[in-house]
Design a protein around this nucleic acid. Sequence first.
DNA 1: GCGACAG
DNA 2: ATCTTGTCGC
Length: 227
Amino acid sequence: MNENIIREFSDIQDELLAKVKLENTIQKEEIQSIAGVDLAYWDKDGKAYGTCCIVVVDYRTQEVIEKVYSYGEITVPYIPGFLAFRELPLIIEAVQKLTKLPDLYMFDGNGYLHYRHMGIATHASFFLNKPTIGVAKSYLKIKDTDFIMPENEEGCYTDIVIDNEVYGRTLRTTKNVKPIFVSCGNWIDLDTSTDIVLNCINKESRLPVPVRLADLETHKVRKQLSK
DNA sequence: GCGACAG
DNA sequence: ATCTTGTCGC
């Protein structure tokens, strides 16, 4: 049943993978703004709806520059490994509403840390044409490889190595709080990604500010739209 | 049948 | 992701 869709999606991912470049196309000193992207869902009349919120913040001051959102019916089901196919339509719609495009996008989900290195952060980069970083709150286990818990100190991390290849990084952004999982999206390396994520951490959350704010925003928007 | 499983 | 209150702790 889903076999055909999964085969089709996998082919698309494999095709895009050939164009991934885990090298910086922008130096972090040049970054002015960063966008956080997230979605929230709800049901109505038996149909599934979603809203995508993008919050752009000033990389230095962490102050909000712009907020936009899109919403609509969600037709693609959630299948582990194929999150991008479900969320990309609303993401692209929201991006088109931005007055000024950000220098980089941070996603709520993985990038290179994925079965075929094509998590949503990596996949989406080809439609946004900007560097991207994946930030996941829970671990996606690949090839039965567990992550190594980093030391309980802010900034500590352990690399996630599978078959001798670094897929991503388990990062402790806040002491006494469980770590997050950072991975390259595209056009950026893992050290720079880690650096940027840590620079977006404040006492409010273990998540980087752009992603955290986008998450809060989706809840507000859903509250309005779902009634 | 049972467990896994980003969001 | 979503359904959900209070509660323990810095």
